[in-house]
Amino acid sequence: MTKDLVSTYEIIKEADTLFPSKSQSIGQCPRCKSQVMENKKGFCCENRDCSFALWKDNKFFTVKKKVLTKAIATDLLKNGKASLADCYSQKTGKTYDAVIILDDTGSQFVNFTMEFPTKKGR
């Protein structure tokens, strides 16, 4: 009976209408071009063979007393960069503004770099 079921199985047309996905794509994976979806712990590529993920508790952001939000992740995926205001400096105890750049080398973890906007009047 199982053989017959498997051999005669047909994909249900319009199944996404019957069983809509609760998660929505926030952008395209820079590695494999699949969709990146939000889940409880972060923003991950829907392609299980791809290891791309932006974790919400990423140390790069937590050290700066920032949270990787859906809006920031969307900007990083769309533009490759996102502006962050009032980032905390552990060294000085002060805050600063920076542009966070997605620096993905394809390794296990996604990296980020920073650029600092030039202040007006300089």
Rank of each mutant, 00 (worst) to 15 (best):
T2V: 10
T2S: 12
K3N: 15
K3L: 13
D4V: 12
L5G: 10
V6D: 08
V6H: 11
K13L: 02
A15F: 08
D16Q: 10
T17H: 03
T17F: 00
T17R: 09
L18M: 07
F19N: 04
P20E: 05
K22C: 01
Q24M: 06
Q24P: 00
Q24Y: 03
I26H: 03
I26T: 02
I26V: 07
G27E: 04
Q28S: 13
R31V: 09
K33M: 05
K33V: 08
S34L: 00
V36P: 06
V36G: 02
M37N: 06
E38L: 04
N39M: 12
G42L: 09
F43H: 06
C44P: 00
C44V: 14
E46L: 01
R48P: 01
C50D: 06
F52W: 05
L54N: 05
K56W: 06
D57H: 09
F60P: 10
F61K: 01
K64L: 13
K64P: 05
K66N: 01
V67C: 01
L68A: 01
T69V: 07
K70I: 10
A71L: 10
A71Y: 00
A73F: 05
T74V: 00
L76H: 06
L77C: 08
L77H: 02
N79P: 01
L84V: 15
A85K: 15
D86G: 11
C87P: 10
S89W: 08
S89A: 15
S89M: 09
Q90E: 11
K91D: 12
T92H: 08
T95C: 13
T95E: 13
Y96D: 07
Y96H: 15
D97T: 15
A98L: 09
I100S: 04
I100D: 04
D103P: 09
D103M: 06
T105L: 14
G106W: 11
Q108C: 09
V110K: 04
F112L: 05
F112P: 13
T113E: 10
P117W: 03
P117C: 12
P117K: 04
T118S: 11
T118W: 00
K120S: 14
R122T: 13
